[in-house]
């Protein structure tokens, strides 16, 4: 999870796109897997996401993030499976649990969508500095700066919090709290008291950030304060057309 959801410096074609294009692309990739119910198409979208990560030089990170999500998805898949009882039975387990073809296909679709829809956001954040995101939100989309700042600050804080949480778990393990237990329920129960230090350090950090922003003129900022100018180029046009095509294909049901 190291560096998940944070910007990675680079100069790939993807990095150089207009921030708005990257946001639209992320949204289109996400939307396509909800518009389409086709497993193959969604798998293709996952593959496309990985290709885009690779083109931005972040494939190793993408794969490790994907793998950690796959574990979680496997649990989701099994849970889903047991809840769907209608359809053509393919398998009957003891205790009267029946697996149906429809159940398997639906559960599979569910986890594929889950995987495919988390990746575009991670992709966008890894190739776009949060400053750029807030600049276009404010200038092009006319979002009030306050809201844009909250969104981008949240994106910036996630890696800090995950680092803090692993530090807290380390400190507790070192004094004998058995996080190395295999019992999942027990592990969750052990995690609950740790929310206190996490909450306290988060509140402290947010407070410090607010002070720092205030003293650097946060309240004076206007829609036109942004210094950087972003231009649309041929690449942006190509990507936007491709996105439109992807969404059209997904929504049209050419592949049901």
């Amino acid at each position: 999870m190291n560096g998940f959801l944070s910007y990675v410096n680079g100069s790939s074609p993807l990095h150089k796109l207009h921030p708005l294009t990257k946001m639209v692309m992320s949204f289109a990739l996400c939307a396509s897997c909800f518009l389409s119910g086709n497993h193959v198409l969604i798998l293709c979208v996952i593959g496309l996401n990985l290709c885009l990560f690779a083109s931005a030089g972040g494939i190793a990170r993408a794969v490790s993030t994907l793998l950690s999500f796959v574990k979680f998805s496997a649990v989701l898949f099994v849970l889903q499976l047991f809840f769907i009882k209608d359809g053509t039975p393919i398998f009957t387990l003891p205790l009267g649990i029946t697996l149906t073809y429809e159940g398997v296909m639906f559960s599979l679709l569910f986890v594929l969508r889950f995987l495919a829809s988390t990746m575009p956001l991670a992709l966008m954040l890894s190739v776009t500095p949060v400053g750029d995101i807030s600049n276009v939100l404010v200038r092009n989309l006319r979002v009030p700066y306050r809201y844009a700042f909250v969104i981008t600050t949240a994106a910036r804080f996630i890696p800090l919090f995950s680092e803090e949480m692993s530090g807290i778990m380390e400190a507790q393990t070192a004094r004998g709290v058995e996080f190395d237990t295999r019992n999942f329920i027990k592990k969750i129960r052990l995690l609950i008291p740790l929310c206190v230090p996490l909450l306290i350090s988060s509140v402290r950090r947010i407070e410090n950030s607010a002070i720092s922003a205030e003293l650097r003129g946060f309240n004076l900022r206007t829609r036109l304060s942004g210094y950087k100018r972003y231009s649309f180029g041929a690449n942006d046009a190509t990507i936007l057309i491709a996105c439109a095509a992807l969404v059209a294909v997904s929504a049209s049901g050419i592949w049901p």
Binding site: P129, R205, I206, N208, S209, I211
Partner: peptide
């Protein structure tokens, strides 16, 4: 003004 808490006084990613 500059503060002790390094991470939280930084507001951008670059």
């Amino acid at each position: 003004s500059v503060f002790q808490d390094i991470d939280s006084q930084m507001l951008a990613s670059v």
